[in-house]
């Protein structure tokens, strides 16, 4: 093909995402809303299209650079919601801070142990070390650990959908009705997608989830790059 059609990828991604987001906003049922997550489907459909048309990833990445480049300032801008949430919870900050740290440490530790028992290659265990955090942060942290960012991102998104669907069931099984406990647990473990599912039907838990999600973004960025090499050092 002499005339390149790659310039189409950015407008196509934007259009696809906006349509999916619109459809998702129209969805009322909680489970259907979680399952129709626009980011998840935008990635799946774009990936499926490339595979079906036997198109290579490299030129695609090259031509969608504009979008990837904007991710960096967007991550810096995450300081704003983090700051807004900070002011909300001064009263409970210590307990939430400790809980979020435990959640982040637990995710890295459990994933590393499972990888160890499965004798997974190093690249794979590095890809699975930072799953208790929102997707843009996991991309960066995973890259700095030498893992595969896209794999980590996919896992994080799927975990979010899982939490949005089964979160309430788990809390009723372990007999917890406290909004703070539910919110912080879901916000830390299942980030944006889990949090969105709480905000709609349990606003109080949803508010705690937003705080926990923001905090675990910061905590993951600090804890995981230090903790992961230590765990690897002990296990190997």
């Amino acid at each position: 093909m002499t005339v390149s059609l790659w310039w189409l990828c950015v407008p196509c991604i934007i259009a696809l995402f906006l349509v999916l987001r619109f459809l998702n906003a129209k969805t009322q049922h909680a489970t259907a809303k979680a399952l129709s997550n626009p980011v998840c489907w935008a990635i799946v459909l774009t990936a499926a299209m490339l595979v079906a048309l036997k198109l290579p990833y490299e030129p695609f990445a090259e031509h969608s650079k504009v979008l990837s480049w904007l991710l960096e300032p967007a991550i810096v801008a995450l300081a704003l919601p983090l700051y807004q949430q900070f002011i909300h919870v001064k009263k409970n900050l210590l307990l939430i801070l400790i809980s979020c740290s435990l959640g982040v440490i637990n995710a890295t530790l459990v994933a590393s142990l499972i990888c160890y028992f499965f004798a997974a290659p190093a690249q794979l265990s590095a890809s699975l070390a930072s799953l208790s955090v929102t997707t843009p942060i996991t991309l960066l942290v995973t890259e700095s650990l030498g893992g595969i960012p896209s794999l980590a991102a996919a896992m994080v998104i799927f975990i979010g959908v899982l939490g949005a669907i089964f979160g309430n069931l788990i809390f009723s099984l372990i007999n917890i009705r406290n909004a703070q406990a539910k919110g912080v647990a879901i916000g830390t473990a299942c980030h944006a997608i889990g949090t969105a599912s709480l905000i709609s039907d349990q606003p109080k838990a949803g508010a705690f989830a937003s705080v926990a999600m923001a905090l675990s973004a910061l905590l993951s960025a600090i804890i995981v790059p230090i903790l992961y090499p230590v765990i690897q050092h002990v296990l190997v």
């Binding site: 991604i13 995402f17 695609f60 979008l67 904007l70 997707t135 843009p136 595969i148 896209s150 998104i157």
Partner: peptide, 26 residues
């Protein structure tokens, strides 16, 4: 600037997420 950046942030990591097609074997 922060509000629109945050609002459309998911768009910015779609290309990275699509990178998963390079690792389907793994």
């Amino acid at each position: 600037t922060a509000s629109p950046l945050l609002n459309y942030m998911p768009l910015f990591f779609i290309p990275a997420g699509v990178g998963i097609i390079e690792h389907l074997g793994l």
